Amino acid sequence: MTDPDRIVVRLASPALFVGASADGTGADTDVVTDEHGLPYLPRHRLAARLRTGALSALRVAPDLAEAVDRVFGRSRSHGADRILRTGHAVPGDEVRAAVAHALAGRAEPIRSTLRRAVTDAHTTLESGIEVGPHGAPEPGRLRTNRVLLPGLVLIAPLTWAVPPEEEHWRCLARACLATDQIGRKASRGRGRVDVHLALPDDPDPRATTLALAAPPARAGEDPRP
Rank of each mutant, 00 (worst) to 15 (best):
T124P: 00
V153I: 12
E130F: 11
A136Y: 09
V147S: 05
A136V: 07
A161D: 10
T123F: 00
T119H: 02
V162D: 10
L148C: 06
G128S: 11
A117H: 13
P163Q: 13
R143T: 07
A121I: 01
P137F: 05
A117F: 00
T124N: 00
P150T: 09
L149V: 14
P150M: 04
I129T: 15
V118I: 05
H134T: 14
A161Q: 11
V162K: 15
A156N: 08
A161K: 13
E126A: 00
R115N: 03
V147T: 12
G140P: 04
T119F: 00
G128V: 00
G128K: 04
R141S: 09
R115P: 03
P163W: 02
L142F: 09
L149H: 08
V162E: 15
R146Y: 04
L148Q: 11
L154D: 11
G135W: 06
L152M: 12
S127D: 14
I155C: 03
G132Q: 07
P137T: 06
P133T: 12
H122G: 10
L125M: 04
G132T: 07
D120Y: 01
G135Q: 05
D120H: 04
T159W: 11
R141C: 02
P157S: 10
T124Y: 03
V147D: 11
R143C: 03
S127V: 03
P139R: 12
E130S: 15
T123S: 11
I129L: 15
L152E: 11
G140L: 06
W160A: 14
R116E: 08
I129D: 10
E126S: 01
N145V: 08
I129E: 13
L125I: 10
L152S: 09
L125G: 00
V147C: 02
E130N: 13
I155T: 15
D120M: 00
L154F: 10
D120W: 02
T159F: 05
H122Q: 14
I129F: 13
L152Y: 03
